[in-house]
Design a protein around this nucleic acid. Structure first.
Lengths: 158, 158
DNA sequence: GCGGCAATACTCGGATAACAACTGTCCGAGTAAGTAAGG
DNA sequence: CCTTACTTACTCGGACAGTTGTTATCCGAGTATTGCCGC
């Protein structure tokens, strides 16, 4: 079990876009160069974020991506779900109902305890990520670093 | 992001072995037929569980697999770790230190907030699974089903 | 000088290969049981 | 009848292909800018 690296990319890009002054759009090329990422592949993840309503794509010169909602209304879970998909990592195959010792369906009205535990674990993980917004992540960036980013984003074209 | 189906198989087999009377060993063939699973592939996961010290392999006729520790001392997390490996699902690539706007290492003494949140989420998930033992899972099986399993395991050869 | 128009360059979007991991399978090494012979 | 050695059959263990998902990339469709021409 491993997260796609696109999760990290999408998260960093979303946090960076939250720091763009006045919702200024950043092109995927600018984002890729900012973090030294392959632009063509990053495009796929940015597209997923746009499809999920996290980012908004602006075409044409001067366009790019910008946050579709205020950073305080975007959670870390939203970004992960957008990149990784909302499918549950664990799906009970109901193997207790198969094989030579299959349990009859009328005795399987309750979901098996294993599936319950897995679901609880996933829920705990989701709640943790749901409790952190993109705005929170911006605030946790060290002040000097945040200042450098601000200079980078708004500096070249004042 | 998706769990290997071996997680479900390993969990069910471990719970089943916990119900074997007197630590009686069950062959992988018996386990596979019990749940209708492909024996050859199940073997790979059982081997992983044995390598992790969850199960104990007994060779020869009448052999098979048995719990290496009491069910009350085995947690759901132990089984998942054995099958999926203990590698973290999210590894920070430190992309903030790369690209045109790379942050110098001396300002990266603290791990980036994104990695922290991911680690917290993973920790919450692990703690949830760590809080449930195999013995707990056995107790959560409906009584009539548990009785049928007991009959199956100890019945044919009283 | 001003408005309209066309050319332009920049942006995203979807379709297309390469790689890796998970899934699935096989046959060989080792061992405990069962058996038969001998004492 | 008991002991002992052998045969046997059953067990796990590691090495070997197939398929799905992730990684990586490219070229085409669409749009705001920009320069130019006409009025």
């Amino acid at each position: 079990m491993r997260f796609s690296e696109g999760v990290e990319w999408g998260m960093h890009c979303t946090v960076l876009l939250a720091q763009a002054a006045g919702g200024k759009a950043l092109s995927r090329r600018a984002l890729a160069e900012h973090y030294g990422l392959p632009e063509a592949y990053l495009a796929k993840h940015l597209r997923a974020l746009a499809a999920a309503g996290i980012l908004r794509a602006v075409p044409g010169p001067g366009g790019g991506y910008q946050l579709a909602r205020p950073a305080a209304q975007l959670t870390a879970l939203d970004v992960v779900d957008a990149v990784e998909g909302t499918a549950s990592p664990f799906t009970c195959q109901e193997i207790r109902q198969q094989g030579t010792s299959a349990v009859p369906p009328e005795q399987c009205r309750r979901p098996c305890a294993i599936a319950v535990v897995m679901a609880q674990g996933q829920q705990a993980w989701r709640e943790t990520l749901r409790g952190v917004t993109i705005a929170d992540l911006v605030e946790r960036i060290p002040a000097p670093v945040r200042e450098q980013i601000r200079a980078k984003l708004g500096g070249p074209r004042p």
